[in-house]
Simulated assay, not measured.
Amino acid sequence: MQQDGLILELQNGNQRAFERIYELYSESVYGIIYSIVNEKDVAEEILQDVFLKIWNNASSYNSEKGRFFTWILNIARNASIDQLRSKSHRNSKKNLAADNFVDILESKSNFIGTADAIGIQKYIKVLKPVCKKLIDLLFFKGFTQKETAEELEIPLGTVKTRNRACINQLRELLAD
């Protein structure tokens, strides 16, 4: 079944279409979620929530506004960021052992693995290092522009300008 037909079937409430979409996308979506939350159990729980949202909100997908996979990734990214910003998540992190901080620091530099999880590593490789870092912080790690400016120790306006330029460069690469 073609992707458009599969999406239409999903929007019509076809459970088999939903199962097929889960088979096609769950691994990539899990990779994105895990790269943001860095916890297997939490990532699995968010993955289930994401696919529940996909099932319940399938009718809101509009192909004229973007690709289906992008729509799914936005749901996953938003759910992951919501989890990180939740009070329960922050409270669970208050008493971390020192060993956990090593993992957190190491995972902050795991951008290439994250990019590969959604199949855009070949495009990311040709971006300037500053673009790689900005995209990683803003889109994969869920930083705000202000948080990114603080992390990179550059002015907020510079983050906004560079982000716009980097996204335009990535769009050009993807259009080719």
Rank of each mutant, 00 (worst) to 15 (best):
K93Q: 15
K87A: 10
K93D: 01
R90N: 01
K108C: 11
Q145L: 10
I32H: 07
F68D: 02
I120N: 05
S63V: 05
V126E: 09
E45R: 12
E44N: 14
A97I: 10
F111D: 13
I118R: 02
S35E: 10
W71K: 01
D82F: 02
F69R: 13
A79S: 15
K125H: 12
R90S: 04
A79G: 03
N78P: 03
V50M: 07
N74M: 09
E147T: 06
D116A: 14
L152S: 12
S59D: 07
N78D: 09
F101Y: 15
K87H: 12
Q83C: 06
V102F: 14
H89G: 00
D136L: 01
Q48G: 12
I124D: 06
N110C: 11
V130G: 06
F101T: 11
D136N: 11
N91H: 11
I75F: 05
T70Q: 04
I124Q: 04
I118C: 02
I36Y: 10
E45G: 13
I81H: 08
S86I: 00
F140I: 03
H89D: 02
P155T: 03
C131I: 00
K40T: 14
L138R: 14
V42C: 11
A43N: 03
V42R: 07
V42N: 06
K93F: 02
A149H: 01
A149D: 06
A43H: 01
N100I: 00
V130E: 15
L52C: 10
L134P: 08
N62T: 02
I54P: 05
K125Y: 11
D99A: 13
N57I: 00
K65I: 01
I81V: 06
S88Q: 12
K132D: 12
V29T: 08
K125P: 00
R85F: 05
I36Q: 15
K122Y: 06
S88D: 13
G66I: 00
F140D: 08
V126K: 14
I72P: 06
F101L: 11
I32G: 03
L47D: 05
A97D: 15
V126C: 06
Y123F: 13
G142T: 05
D41Y: 12
G119Y: 11
A115E: 04
V37H: 02
I135S: 10
D49I: 05
E147Y: 03
D103E: 12
S107F: 04
I124R: 02
N74V: 00
K146Q: 13
S28M: 08
N56T: 08
E106D: 12
E27G: 14
R67E: 12
I46C: 07
